[in-house]
Design a protein around this nucleic acid. Structure first.
Lengths: 352, 352
DNA sequence: GTCAGCGCTCCACTCGGTCGAGTGCTTAAA
DNA sequence: TTTAAGCACTCGACCGAGTGGAGCGCTGAC
C-alpha cells in the first residue's frame, strides 16, 4: 500500500534523506537548524521544523526526548533504503580488496570462508555466507565402506573435487564385496548425472521397477537412496562477529550476548538468510523486521548469488541499523556476483 | 625461589586468604575493618592495616586509589591458588550436571563438543577442549579413490568408527585398479595396528626394503606414508565465549574484542593449552602469566585428560581472574577425568 | 505556504557540599 | 617489639542547585 509514503513532496523527501544521512554519519540526533543549513534547500529552520513535525506524525522520525534533534525510526530507514538512497558504485579500493581476496581454484569451503572474511573486513561488520544448495552438480562417484556390523560409510564425490561422508546404520549387514558390487552398479548408472537427477532416478526406480531386479540391485538402489537422500546439512559461514563489539549503539551487553549467541547457534541466522533467497537483488532487513527481537538496532544486507543463472545461495552482512547503506549495498552486491562467478568456472574437470 | 612468600606468618596468610575470598565473592575492594571482622582472628583493624601494608610492600595486594580497600594483585592470586586455597570437592549438582552430559557411545567429535559446552555451562565461563592427539588408536582400514588427474582421496577409518579424508596431490597418476591393489596391500599389512605403529612401519619399510619390492608395493608404501604421514590438524573446541560478556571486569570493549578474536583464531588458545599438556594435574594461568597481554584480568584453569594412563589432551576454562577457584578447579578436574574415561571405553569393537 | 520570534522543555555539565569508607601516622599500653 | 586506639586526611560516591545550549511548538505577520 505505502499510502503514507507516497504523499511526501520533494522537499520532505530531501529533508528526510539529509536527516538520515547526517545521522548515519554522526550518530547524533539532528535538529532543525543544522538540517536547514545542510539540506541545500533555501528554507528556514522554522519551516524545517514544520516538515519534521509531519514526518514525525508519519512515524518516520522521532526525538529521543523533548528538545533533542530527531533520529530516524525503522520505518524511516525503510523508506530511505527503498526510495531515497542513492547507491554509490563501490569505491575502487573496495573492489580491489574484494577481487584480490578470491583465490582461483579454491575449494567451495575455502571460497565460503574467504568470502565471509572479506565481507566482514571490508564492511567492518559481521559477514555471512549461506553455503550453496546443491544445484545441478554432478555426482562423480559413489563408494561404500563397511565399518562394522550394519554400519556403512558412504562416500560421495561431487564435481570431481568435493567429498562427502555419510555413515549409514542399516538393519542387515553387507560384506565389503557386496558393497563393492552395489557401488559399481550405482556408478555405472548414475555417475555424471546431477545430484538432483540421481535422487529422482533412484526414487523412480524404487517405485517402478521393484520386481524386475534381483535382490542385489534392489539393495543397491535402497542404499544409494539412503546415501544421497538426506539433504546435506544446511550451513552458514560467519566471520567478523567481533566487529559488532565496536558499535556503541549495540553496547548493551545483554543484547550483544544474544547476538553473538545467535551467531554461534547459526539457526536464526539461517532463518534470516533463507528469507532472502527469493528475490534476485540486494535485500535489506531493518531492525525487528525479521521478527527476532534481539535484532533491535541491527540491520541485515543480503544478496543472492547464482551460478549459471541459477540462484544457489545467499550472502550478506549484519551490522548496526545506523550503517552506511550507500557503501555497504554495492559491496554486498559485487561480492555476490564475484562469488557466483568464482563458483561458476569449474576448474578441474574430470579428464574423461 | 619464592623467598618473599615463605616468610609470611600464619596471621598474614589468613588475612590474605580472607581478603581474596572476600574480593572474589563481592568484587569490592576490602578494607581493614571488614577484614578484621571477617577473618576470624581477634585483632583490631589497626593491626590488620599494618599487615596489609606489609602485604602491599610484597606486591600481593594494592589499592586502586588512596582510601579504597585493597584488591589482590596477580602475584597475590598466584600465592592464593598455590598455597592458600582450600579446594572444595565439587558440589553434587555440579557432578550430576557433568555426568549426565556425557552420552555413551558418542563419537570423538561429539564428545569434544559436549564437553566444552558442559564446561562453559557449569562454570558460566568459556570452556575449551584440546582434541586428543592420536594416541594408539587402531587403523581399521585405508582406502583410495581416484578423483582426477593425479588427485587421490585417501580415506582412513580409525577405531572402526572415525573417518578421516585427505586429498593427496601426486605427480604420477594411478588407475583406480592400481589404487585398489595398493589399498589391499596396505590393509593386509597394517590394519589393526596403531596409527603410530603404522607410521613407524611405513618409514622403516621405505628405508630398509626399497629394492626388494616391486614398483607397486613401493608406490603403495609411499602413498600410505603420505596419507598417514601428515599429522592431522591440531584443533581445539571452544564454547560459551559469550559468557565472558557478562563480567564487568572484562567490560573494556577493545580487550573483549581481542579476547573473542583469539577464540575465533584458536591459535593462541592452542598455544596456551599446549603449555599445560605437561604436568598431570590442574594448572592455572593468571593474567599475563601466559605472555599474552590481552589476557589481562583473565585466568585459565586447565587439566590434562588421559586414556589408558596416557595423557592425550587438555581441557579447561577461561574466565575472569576474579573467579571462584575453589569451585572451578574441581569442576575442571572431574570433567577431565570423566572425559578420559568416556574416551577410554571403546564402545563398538569391530566384529572380527 | 513561509518564516521570524518567543517561550518553553529538557539534557548535559559544573560546582559545592556532605557522607562514608579507609588509610597512614602517632602514641601509648602490654 | 608487638598490638591497639585515636586522629587527621584523602578520595570517591552521591545529591541538589544552577547554568547554558540545543531544539521544539506555537503564533502571527507577510
Amino acid at each position: 500500500m505505502e499510502n503514507a509514503t507516497i504523499n511526501l513532496d520533494a522537499r520532505a523527501r530531501t529533508l528526510l534523506r539529509t536527516l538520515i544521512e547526517s545521522y548515519i554519519r554522526d550518530g547524533q540526533p539532528v535538529g532543525s537548524r543544522t538540517l536547514a543549513r545542510t539540506s541545500g534547500l533555501s528554507v528556514s529552520a522554522a519551516t524545517v521544523r514544520n516538515v519534521m513535525a509531519d514526518l514525525e506524525d508519519m512515524g518516520l522520525i522521532h526525538s529521543p526526548h523533548t528538545s533533542a534533534g530527531r533520529i530516524p525510526t525503522p520505518a524511516g530507514y525503510r523508506l530511505f533504503v527503498d526510495s531515497l538512497l542513492e547507491v554509490r558504485s563501490p569505491s575502487p579500493e573496495d573492489i580491489r580488496a574484494i577481487q584480490s581476496g578470491f583465490a582461483p581454484n579454491a575449494s567451495t569451503q575455502d571460497l565460503m570462508d574467504t568470502t565471509s572474511n572479506l565481507l566482514s573486513r571490508v564492511t567492518r561488520m559481521a559477514g555471512m555466507v549461506r553455503l550453496p544448495r546443491h544445484r545441478n552438480v554432478a555426482l562423480s562417484q559413489i563408494e561404500f565402506l563397511r565399518l562394522g556390523e550394519g554400519r556403512i560409510l558412504a562416500i560421495l564425490v561431487i564435481d570431481g573435487k568435493e567429498v562427502q561422508n555419510r555413515v549409514l546404520e542399516l538393519e542387515r549387514d553387507f560384506s565389503q564385496d557386496e558393497l563393492q558390487r552395489m557401488a559399481n552398479y550405482l556408478n555405472a548408472h548414475l555417475a555424471g548425472k546431477s545430484l538432483h537427477a540421481v535422487r529422482a532416478e533412484l526414487l523412480r526406480e524404487m517405485r517402478d521397477v521393484r520386481e524386475d531386479l534381483d535382490a542385489m540391485m534392489l539393495a543397491a538402489i535402497d542404499l544409494g537412496e539412503k546415501a544421497v537422500g538426506d539433504e546435506d546439512p544446511d550451513d552458514v559461514v560467519v566471520a567478523g562477529q567481533t566487529h559488532l563489539l565496536g558499535y556503541e549503539e549495540l553496547a548493551d551487553m545483554a543484547r550483544l550476548r544474544q547476538l553473538l549467541e545467535a551467531f554461534n547457534e547459526k539457526q536464526e541466522i539461517l532463518g534470516i538468510l533463507d528469507q532472502c533467497i527469493c528475490g534476485d537483488r540486494v535485500q535489506i532487513f531493518i531492525g525487528r523486521e525479521s521478527g527476532l527481537d534481539w535484532f533491535e538496532n541491527c540491520s541485515v544486507v543480503t544478496a543472492p548469488y547464482s551460478v549459471d543463472g541459477e540462484v544457489v545461495g545467499v550472502l550478506g552482512v549484519i551490522g548496526p541499523t545506523r550503517m552506511s547503506y550507500d557503501r555497504v549495498i554495492p559491496i554486498v552486491d559485487v561480492t555476490a556476483r564475484l562469488l557466483g562467478s568464482a563458483l561458476g568456472d569449474h576448474p578441474v574437470d574430470d579428464s574423461k
